[in-house]
Design a binder for these strands. Structure first.
Length: 158
DNA sequence: GCCAACGTTGGC
DNA sequence: GCCAACGTTGGC
């Protein structure tokens, strides 16, 4: 895959106790630091474009679900935490010359009045193919189709 | 806290 | 390159 010219849609997981949609609201923008999985990194490095829509998903939460929306605001740059010795995301194999890890910047767009709960998503037939619902799916950054994005947004208000 | 499913590591 | 051991993810 490589960067296309069409609108892209993504789902990005975050643990709300670490960084929630409200944290993103306060920050305005943030580098999506700490991704240490090659497949997820490759999505950020190769495919995510400024203006792509991002569903912010709260994982390891009670209940888990999509908490809000963001937009990609900057193309991937080296993840600064990879070379910060005191960061929990420090990777001794990374260096300024060979950063290994990259991250995009995202900008807060909206926090949903109500979480779109995982359980609610499971019940929607039009979302049955969502990667998130696939058994054993742990990928922290996932592509979403335009139809799935629209179907998810339709669930955002009661 | 449990544990299934997955990714990574490292010995061979 | 195989694969067992280990660490992590994340729903429950």
């Amino acid at each position: 895959m490589s960067k296309s010219t069409t609108q892209g849609y993504w789902l990005m997981k975050t643990e709300p106790e670490v960084f929630s949609i409200e944290d993103l609201r306060r920050a305005g923008t943030t580098l999506w630091e700490g991704v240490r999985n090659y497949q997820a990194r490759n999505f950020m490095m190769n495919d995510m474009k400024v203006g792509d829509d991002v569903l912010v998903y709260h994982s390891n939460a009670n209940p888990p679900g999509v908490a809000g929306l963001a937009k990609v605001s900057r193309l991937a740059v080296p993840d600064p935490t990879a070379t910060q010795r005191r960061s929990p995301y420090f990777d001794p194999k990374a260096s300024a010359e060979k950063p290994i890890w990259y991250c995009v910047e995202v900008r807060f767009a909206e926090a949903f009045p109500r979480l779109i709960a995982l359980e609610q998503i499971r019940q929607r037939p039009e979302l049955k193919d969502l990667l998130l619902l696939r058994r054993g799916m742990r990928l922290s950054i996932q592509p979403v189709t335009a139809k799935e994005f629209a179907a998810l947004l339709a669930l955002r208000s009661p």
